[in-house]
């Protein structure tokens, strides 16, 4: 795949030419610009209120894509439409297509449960269930048909090790998850998503409710997921986006609806943005 799709979809506003993405600037070489998810002219509205207009963007497999933009421009809405969590919101209509490995996720007959199993999501506020740590992780496994207790325990252990919690809490797996610290809770939520072995992780400001230390821990964790998972992360912390993301998409509210202004390699978007709104935003002048 040598001609990435972005070029066709987001014409360069200055030159009028389609731009292409070159080789990766940051991140290990495992990130190939092969689209894992393609969002095609997506529009989303809550009732009469359009919040996303004509968004087209590719999310590359194994890479970390950061979504940035001012509050209210629809980043969370975009994330939730990728795993069809928007189905749960009354009056939310989604137009356009979202292709996951070539298939439209809105096509009739698509199993949402399977979709969400493969596309995990982490929320802004840690939301471990009011159960024990072990049950938090076992519940989704059982739900997806895993019955073998040994295997369940193995997978719990593996995912807790992945998020670096194993050493901290392996001796109290049966304690209530709510007793953990905020940062631990958030990592538990990540483990809970990972335990299902998804291929995509959607993260909605996973660090914003955490203190700086926990935030750094989670950030390192996200960084370590690169290559194995396709990560889409929303963050208001531009420095963080810059540190961990391979690609970045900048959203802006235009005519009261969120639009995609620029999508590029993270480094390029921050260092030589092509749109002046992007430039102003990343330099801290606006937004």
């Amino acid at each position: 795949m040598n001609t990435p799709f972005v070029g066709d979809l987001v014409p360069d506003s200055k030159t009028g030419e389609a731009f292409t993405l070159g080789p990766l600037v940051t991140g290990p070489p495992c990130c190939e610009p092969v689209p894992k998810i393609r969002v095609e002219s997506l529009s989303l509205s809550y009732g009469q209120n359009e919040v996303l207009r004509n968004i087209s963007l590719d999310i590359y497999g194994g890479c970390i894509t950061a979504l940035i933009g001012p509050s209210g421009c629809g980043k969370t809405s975009l994330l939730s439409s990728i795993n069809r969590l928007t189905d749960l919101v009354p009056g939310c209509q989604v137009q356009g297509r979202i292709l996951r490995e070539g298939g439209d996720i809105h096509a009739p007959g698509v199993d949402v449960h399977a979709l969400r199993r493969d596309v995990g999501m982490i929320f802004q506020r840690p939301n471990p269930f009011p159960l024990s740590i072990r049950r938090n992780l076992a519940l989704p496994l059982r739900e997806h048909g895993l019955r073998n207790a040994r295997e369940i325990d193995d997978r719990i252990e593996r995912s807790l090790k992945d998020v670096g919690l194993w050493d901290e809490i392996s001796d109290r797996l049966d304690a209530p998850a709510q007793a953990l610290s905020g940062g631990q809770q958030q990592r538990l939520c990540i483990a809970r998503a990972l335990v299902l072995e998804p291929s995509v992780l959607l993260m909605d400001e996973p660090c914003s409710a955490l203190d700086p230390i926990s935030s750094a821990v989670v950030e390192d964790l996200v960084e370590s997921l690169r290559g194995r998972y396709t990560v889409v992360i929303v963050t208001h912390n531009l420095a963080q986006a810059r540190r961990i993301a391979n690609y970045a998409a900048f959203f802006w509210v235009k005519d009261r609806a969120g639009t995609l202004v620029e999508f590029d390699h993270c480094k390029r978007l921050f260092e030589s943005p092509r749109d002046e709104r992007t430039a102003a935003y990343v330099s801290g002048a606006r937004g």
Binding site: H113, L115, L131, C189
Partner: peptide, 19 residues
């Protein structure tokens, strides 16, 4: 919790009964 469960692909019945 409802959203968290849904995002894990947990069915509504399990969400109601177990969470």
């Amino acid at each position: 919790w409802r959203l968290g469960a849904a995002a894990l692909g947990v069915s509504r019945s399990t969400t109601i009964v177990r969470i």
